[in-house]
Amino acid sequence: MQIFVKTLTGKTITLEVEPSDTIENVKAKIQDKEGIPPDQQRSIFAGKQLEDGRTLSDYNIQKESTLHLVLR
């Protein structure tokens, strides 16, 4: 499925993911596309910070959902 990741600069990245993917996985995909190390990424969805060990389905993130990426 496709999800979108919006950065603070307003750029939107499209990722191909599975509901079973962990947040860690997703951060690795963002690193592949953007070169941002996962330890600098904070992902926010529906106002909640997403934890690395959880999966997209844990957070009820579905296709075409938009995550927000904040850098630390």
Rank of each mutant, 00 (worst) to 15 (best):
M1G: 01
Q2N: 09
Q2A: 07
Q2I: 15
Q2R: 14
I3R: 00
I3F: 00
F4S: 03
F4A: 04
F4W: 06
V5N: 01
K6C: 14
K6S: 06
K6M: 10
K6A: 07
T7K: 02
T7M: 14
T7I: 14
L8W: 15
L8Q: 12
L8D: 12
L8M: 12
T9Q: 11
T9H: 12
T9K: 11
T9M: 08
G10Y: 02
G10D: 03
K11I: 10
T12R: 07
T12Q: 06
I13F: 13
I13M: 05
T14I: 12
T14Q: 09
L15K: 01
L15E: 00
V17C: 04
V17H: 00
V17F: 03
V17W: 01
E18M: 14
E18S: 14
P19A: 09
S20G: 11
T22P: 03
T22L: 09
I23M: 05
E24L: 14
N25L: 13
V26W: 01
V26K: 01
V26F: 04
V26H: 01
V26E: 01
V26D: 03
K27R: 08
K27Q: 05
A28E: 10
K29I: 06
I30D: 01
I30T: 02
K33D: 07
E34P: 04
G35D: 05
G35M: 05
G35L: 05
G35P: 05
I36P: 07
P37M: 10
P37H: 12
P38C: 08
P38S: 14
D39T: 09
Q40D: 10
Q40I: 11
Q41A: 10
Q41E: 07
R42G: 14
R42D: 14
S43L: 15
I44M: 12
I44G: 04
F45D: 04
K48W: 08
K48L: 12
K48Y: 10
Q49P: 12
Q49V: 15
L50Q: 01
L50E: 02
E51G: 03
D52P: 09
G53R: 07
R54V: 07
R54S: 06
R54E: 03
T55I: 06
T55L: 07
T55F: 05
T55C: 02
L56N: 02
L56P: 01
L56D: 02
L56T: 00
L56E: 02
S57R: 12
Y59H: 03
N60F: 06
I61C: 02
Q62D: 07
K63Q: 13
K63T: 11
K63C: 05
K63R: 11
E64T: 05
T66I: 13
T66W: 07
T66C: 05
L67P: 01
L67V: 07
L67C: 01
L67A: 00
L67S: 01
H68T: 12
H68S: 06
L69E: 06
L69T: 02
L69K: 00
L69V: 07
V70Y: 12
L71N: 07
L71A: 09
R72M: 14
R72T: 12
R72A: 13
